[in-house]
Design a protein around this nucleic acid. Sequence first.
DNA 1: TTTTGTTGTTCATACGTATGCACAACTATT
DNA 2: AATAGTTGTGCATACGTATGAACAACAAAA
Lengths: 341, 341
Amino acid sequence: MTKRNATSADVAILAGVSQSTVSRSFDPDSRISEATRQRVFAAAEKLGYQINKAAQTMIKKRSDLVGLVTAGLEDPFRSEFLHKLIVEVQNCGLRPMVMDVSNQQTIDEELHGLIQYQLSGVIITSGTPSENIGKAFIRHGIPVVLVNRTEHSDEADIVNLDNEGAGAIAAEAFMKSGKTNLVVVRAKKPSFSSVMRAKGFLNYLASHINNDEIQATEVLCETGSYDSGYQIADKILTSQHKPDGVFFCMDHIACGFLDAAKQLITAKEMQSIGVIGCDDIALARFKAYDLTTVKQPSTEIAKAAVQTLLNRLKYPTSAPSKQAIPAELIYRSTLAKPITD
Amino acid sequence: MTKRNATSADVAILAGVSQSTVSRSFDPDSRISEATRQRVFAAAEKLGYQINKAAQTMIKKRSDLVGLVTAGLEDPFRSEFLHKLIVEVQNCGLRPMVMDVSNQQTIDEELHGLIQYQLSGVIITSGTPSENIGKAFIRHGIPVVLVNRTEHSDEADIVNLDNEGAGAIAAEAFMKSGKTNLVVVRAKKPSFSSVMRAKGFLNYLASHINNDEIQATEVLCETGSYDSGYQIADKILTSQHKPDGVFFCMDHIACGFLDAAKQLITAKEMQSIGVIGCDDIALARFKAYDLTTVKQPSTEIAKAAVQTLLNRLKYPTSAPSKQAIPAELIYRSTLAKPITD
DNA sequence: TTTTGTTGTTCATACGTATGCACAACTATT
DNA sequence: AATAGTTGTGCATACGTATGAACAACAAAA
C-alpha cells in the first residue's frame, strides 16, 4: 500500500540522469540544459516526487521554518497579528511554526527546543522570555526579530509600533477637541506597549500645556481585558473630577468601559465624554462601539518584521536595525473629528 | 564567533563514549547505565548540545510537526479555535506548523508542499481543498484529521461539532419559550456547518409541530460576517411576518443584527424577539450583546482532534473514526431561560 | 567448570539531499 | 590549428542521527 516515497535517486533513474542532476534541476540558479530539466520534471511528476525537507535542511543547515513566538492569543488583537505574520511568512516562501508560551514556567525550556529545528529565524511578539534566550538563538546562528518588546538587545532586530507617538496622537486629538480633563487608562501589570503609550500621552500634554488649563491623570485597571474596562468604569465616572476625555491604552479596555458606561450614565452624558482607544481591533468598528482609536497598523508591522528577518538572512553581519512604525488616528463616534479650518 | 553547533559526536568525545551511546542516552527506553547517562547529560549541557531535528527526521522518517490547515482567520472564532489547536498540539510534544489557505487558487499546490516535511499528521479545519488532496497525504503516509468539514472520506478521521444537534437545541429552546414565528439565518455560500445547523433547526421543528402553530423560514445573508448580519436586519424586521425568534448559524451575524436592530426598532420591541446565535465567540458574552447562543465547545473539539491524530499514529491501520461533539445552550439575555417546573 | 542469560556499550550503516571537483563536449579566441 | 573559455553532467562525499548486529563483561543457573 504505502510504498516508499520517491527520492531524487528514483527520479534520476527514471529520467536517465544522475542524482546530482535531479537536485540541480530544482535549483533555478544551476546550469542545466532546458531539455534535461524538463525530462527531470516529467519523471518527478510521474513518481509524485516531493523534495525531502529534512534531508535538505541537514545539508543546508537551515530549514525554511520561522518560529513565531507568542502568548495570550485569547486577546483578539494578538491573534489577529499572529494571523498576519503567518500570511506574511508564507508569502515569502517560508513556513510558520507557531509557539504559544503563555505558560510562564516553561518558556525558556520550550524556546530552547526551537533551536533543534534549524530555524531560519524567530519572531518574538509576546511572552516574557528571559534576557538570555535571545542570545541563545543568536549564538546558534538563528536571527531574532523582536516585535513590540521592551527588551533592549544588541543583537536582535527590533520592530515596534511608535507607542509613544500613539499616545501623543491621542493627546493631540483631545486638545484639538477642547477637552481639558483627561484620563489615561492602562493595565496594572506594566506591558511595554501600554506603558509607552501612557507615557507618550502624558508627555505630549506636559510639553504642550502653557497654563494649567488641562489636567491629566493616570488610572490603572487590573488587566488589558474587556472585563477590566468594564470594572474600571465606575471609578472613572463617579470621581469628583469626571473627565471629558479618556484614553485607553488598549481597545478592549475601552469597549468594556463603554458597555459599563451605558448602564452607569445616560447616553447624553456619555456624549460629552470623548473616548479614544488604541490598536484598532476588529471590534472597534462594530456599531455597538464605533470607537475612535489610534490604529496600530498591524499589517505593516507584520510585513516589516518578516522583511527585517529576510534582510538579516541576506546580510547576516549588518548592524541590528530598529524601527518604529507610526500610528494613525481613526475618528469614529466616541470622539468626533473636530472641524478644522 | 558562531562556532559550529555541537553534535552528538562532540558530546560523545567529551563524555568518553560512542555516538550511539549519546543517542541512546536521550531515549528513555534504551538500556543505559545511569552513570553513563548522567555523564552524557553533563557533557551535553556543557556543550549546549541540542538534538538536530532534521537528522532525526531523516532517520525516523517522521518529524514531530503537525500541519494545521486553516482559512479565514479574520473570523475570530476560527482564530480562537486555531489557538486551541496550537496549544493542544504543543501539549502533546508536537509542533504546530500553520498554513493559511485563504488564497483559493493555490491551495492544492501549497498543500502538496506540506508533504515535504514528513509531517506527523495534518489537521484540516477550513479551506476548500480538492477531494484528492486528503488522499495525497494518506498515500504519502501522513494521517489526516478533518474538523467540521463536509468532505466524506474513507481514509481520514473526522471530528465534527454535532451541527444538526446544535440547530435542534436552538429550535427546542424557542419552543420552550413559546415562540411561534421563527427565522433561521445562514450565509448564502453554503458552508457545511451552517447548512447542517439550519437543517437541524428546521428538522427539529418539523418533527415536533403537531398543528400549524409554529412557522419557520430560512433567510440567507451574504456572508458569515458581522456586516452581513447588520445588513440583513432590515429585511427581517420589516417583513410582514415579523418573527419572535431568530436563530443565527453564526454568532457574528447575530451581533451585526443586534447592532442594526438597535437603530431600527425600540429596545422594547426588541425585547419580544428572541435571538440565539451559534458558536459562543468571545464577543457573545460582552454586555453590548449578551447573546444567548448554542456553544460550540471548541476546546473539546481541539482536544478530540489532536487525540484522534495521536491515536491514528499509534494504530495506523485501525478503521477511520468519526465523532460528533455535542453542543450546549448558553442562556444570556437575548433569550431568557424559561422558568421550568 | 560450563552454559545460559542479562546488561551496557561500540561498530557500522542508512536516511536523501546539496555541492566541490573533475571532466567531456563544445564554442570562441588567438 | 592550437589554446582558452564555457556549458552540462556525473562522482563522491558530507550532513547528524537512530538502530540492528556484534560483542564484552558479568551474573546466574546447571
